[in-house]
Simulated scan of single mutants.
Amino acid sequence: MNILLTGGAGFIGRWVLKRLLEDGHHVWVLDDLSNGREANLAEFREHPGLKSFVKGSILNESVLSDLFIANKFDICYHLGASINVQDSIDDPRTTFNNDTVGTFYILEQCRRHDVKVVFMSTCMVYDRCMDEKGIDEAHPIKPASPYAGAKIAAENMVLSYYHAYGLPTVVIRPFNTYGPFQKTGGEGGVVAIFIKNKLAGKTLNIYGEGTQTRDLLYVEDCARFVAEAGYSDKVNGEIVNAGLGRDIAINDLALMIAGDASRIAHVEHIHPQSEIQKLLCDSSKAGRLLGWKPEVTLEEGIRRTEEWIRATNLI
């Protein structure tokens, strides 16, 4: 198939690109590099399936129009977004424009050219999990940050195009994804930051009490889920979760990575109002509709991520 992948130079986007190329598709990547890195695409530069990398914004309608007119896309995997919660609190306009308005521009092109949309949302739209059954797609949502609010608004637009126009669309909500190629700085994920600090001999700082839990999904499992959501008509018009199905307190995660409680410290939370105390995924719908289930354990995923950070000298 011919596929447009927005945000393809980002952390998850890079792995989705790898998966799509392995599956034999032709892929065009659109990324403005505000969060992604062109280096993430380096190993695919000579791959015959990577047709083009376009440095451009989803907010530039002329760039989008040219892409859609020139290439008959079958699917658009829309991962391009602002993803930082604190940034959305500090500067909600940028997040709203990128995540909501940008998604609208993508939808309009896909409607005109009859292209399926796979929209990458987030587990951050959910209210806290109250039990051990986990969060399914019917769980209450709570826009505790402008990031979550922008994603919910975009989700509603994506689903409206399914109901109003019959456009095949799907909203996917992966839980906290980690793995190789994730940034290890302040804007990275908790696993990458903890591993980097451990290897650099630094303290692992935890926001708040550290009792908050996360369901951590290894990035290759996530990429497989993203790809499969595009391939299957069974999820059209649906919202679908993906997660490990196991949550871990940040305190326990830090200890697992550091192996030494004296290396761990607690600091004041930078955005306590948008903290979700418990995140645990019920991804049974993905299993039922896509035959998807996670394959990489947390321990194995952390081992692979640490190995990559060591090998790339990101300390």
Rank of each mutant, 00 (worst) to 15 (best):
N2D: 15
A9Q: 09
G10F: 04
K18N: 11
E22H: 06
D23E: 15
V27T: 07
V29P: 04
L33V: 11
N35P: 01
F44E: 05
E46A: 15
P48S: 14
G49M: 13
G49C: 07
K51S: 13
F53D: 01
V63M: 10
I69F: 11
A70C: 09
N71E: 14
K72Y: 03
I75K: 08
Y77T: 10
Y77E: 00
P92A: 05
T95N: 07
F96C: 12
F96W: 15
V101H: 05
F104S: 12
I106F: 08
E108M: 12
R112Y: 06
V115W: 13
V117F: 10
M120W: 09
C123H: 05
M124D: 13
I135H: 02
E137N: 06
I141T: 15
I141P: 05
I141Y: 13
A144S: 15
A144H: 04
G149V: 13
A150S: 15
N156Y: 15
L159C: 07
A164G: 09
G166F: 12
V171M: 11
T184N: 07
G185P: 03
V190L: 14
V191C: 06
A192K: 02
A192H: 08
I193A: 06
I193P: 00
K196S: 09
L199T: 05
K202D: 13
N205V: 10
Y207S: 14
G210E: 10
G210I: 06
Q212M: 12
R214D: 08
D215Q: 08
L216P: 00
L217V: 06
V219R: 02
E220T: 15
F225Y: 14
V226Q: 05
E228H: 10
Y231E: 13
V235H: 01
N236W: 07
G237A: 11
I239H: 01
I239P: 00
R246V: 15
I248M: 13
A249L: 04
L253H: 00
L255Q: 02
A258C: 11
A265V: 12
H269L: 05
S274K: 07
E275V: 11
S284F: 01
K293W: 08
E295R: 14
V296R: 02
I302G: 00
R303V: 01
R303L: 04
R303Y: 12
T305A: 03
E306V: 12
R310I: 09
R310N: 08
A311K: 15
T312S: 10
N313D: 13
I315F: 14
